[in-house]
Nucleic acid binder design. Structure first.
Lengths: 236, 236
DNA sequence: CGGATCTGAGAGCAGTGCTCTCGATTCGAG
DNA sequence: CTCGAATCGAGAGCACTGCTCTCAGATCCG
């Protein structure tokens, strides 16, 4: 199908809107994202933008999906460079990729993992697929290591211990299904914890919770944290 | 000094502004916080509130400080109910208190620990003191346990291992000083990790990163996560 | 009592998201 | 090639925001 000039122009304008939106997001943050400002940068009157983007929230959704995709791509590329036989290295690569991207694109990171934008409800059918790629990859790293018998189960049980596992958590069946993994409950739980903890560390750093420069060497601190998270999974 | 009627009225109005602000924060989120709306609820014209609050950011700061204070009070109360000799119980109480408050006041929690409000810079001299009470308490739990010889150092070193400690992290001297603790580097690092991880877990839950109801039983999941974090510190 | 201070009202400026209408352009079927 | 239909940009307009300014009245205090 020969794309008509009009369709071409439309796609081009659409791209440019998202591009300018990304720039404004990086500059002024999510709350400062203004369709009128985008229209100005586009050299067009404000109402014209509404021919392309239904609303401000629609643009937000576009930026969210693109953000997830970009983060996922970076993370997947980084992990792919480490052999499957080195789960600890793969987890480290994943963590470093997340942190590097978050520091490079703090506004987009905040849009994805920070406070939900009030009044904005992400349409799940458009964002979940993009948003689960990273946790899926993390779980697959754990799953591969477990399947290959490379998780020190004895150590894992020594750490988690029957008495230390307070209650059987229901609902992990859905997690197993959603992520296509087959791991025992305690390993799944630890995986979820590592996932949350990783983003907790990155968020604290990106959002400035550590307070100015309280932590002398953020890089070294993060390396240490990632190592401890791998310890938590008893990865070799 | 006998407080004049005018001073009394002023303090009262001030309180009411903050009270209404808190309500709006819970209802519409930080971005939806509008001085004009507050003025309306106060039955006063918009410019009048500027007699009490210098700007919207000033109000934000007031709400932030109050949020930190409230959270800290809850956490300290919860921890105080557990004897010092039970560090694991104290850590659990701390975590549960944070999570309970965060779920009860998601908007305030987001204001404190979510994406930084764009264009808003928290005046450190007013927020850091309030903001460090919880991490200070967490560190003191760890410190007390360590001083009492109740951290299984052998297990801790088995987990962290010399080879697993990638690099010496400089800057922990400042942390030790700021928190008034005297712990070896690896224990400090683990404490910081536990702190970040705890808020990562809570943030993921409050901000809906787990996706709708993917996790069947959030309470049980959190208990499990807190237990694993205590394991990470090798607490008894 | 009377000057100084504080307070609320109101108008106004610049910005926002979003809707509507109205010409002009472009598309595609006849 | 033509003509109706679809698309597009411009502009005005509505309701809202933060914030500033001025003005009149209330209150304080020496």
């Amino acid at each position: 199908m020969a794309t008509t000039p009009r369709a071409r122009a439309r796609a081009q304008t659409m791209d440019e809107i998202v591009r300018i939106g990304r720039r404004h997001l990086a500059t002024d943050g999510a709350a400062g994202l203004s369709l009128r400002a985008i229209a100005r940068d586009l050299g067009v009157v404000s109402s014209a933008v509404y021919r392309y983007v239904q609303s401000r929230d629609e643009l937000l959704t576009l930026l969210i999906v693109e953000g997830y995709d970009e983060l996922s791509r970076r993370v997947e590329d980084a992990v792919a460079e480490v052999p499957t036989a080195d789960p600890r290295g793969r987890l480290g690569a994943l963590g470093r990729a997340v942190r590097t991207w978050a520091r490079a694109e703090p506004a987009t990171y905040a849009l994805l993992f920070g406070s939900p934008v009030p009044g904005y409800r992400a349409p799940e059918e458009r964002t979940v697929a993009a948003g689960t790629r990273v946790p899926r990859l993390l779980m697959s790293i754990v799953s591969d290591a477990y399947a290959a018998g490379r998780i020190d189960i004895a150590a894992h049980h020594r750490a988690t211990g029957a008495s230390a596992t307070p209650a059987l958590v229901s609902g992990f069946e859905e997690v197993r299904e959603a992520f296509g993994i087959d791991l025992p409950d305690d390993v799944v739980a630890t995986g979820v914890l590592v996932w949350s903890a990783l983003f907790g560390c990155v968020s604290f750093e990106v959002f400035g919770q550590y307070g100015a420069d309280a932590m002398g060497d953020p890089d070294a601190l993060f390396e240490l944290q990632v190592t401890r998270l791998a310890d938590l999974l008893c990865l070799p």
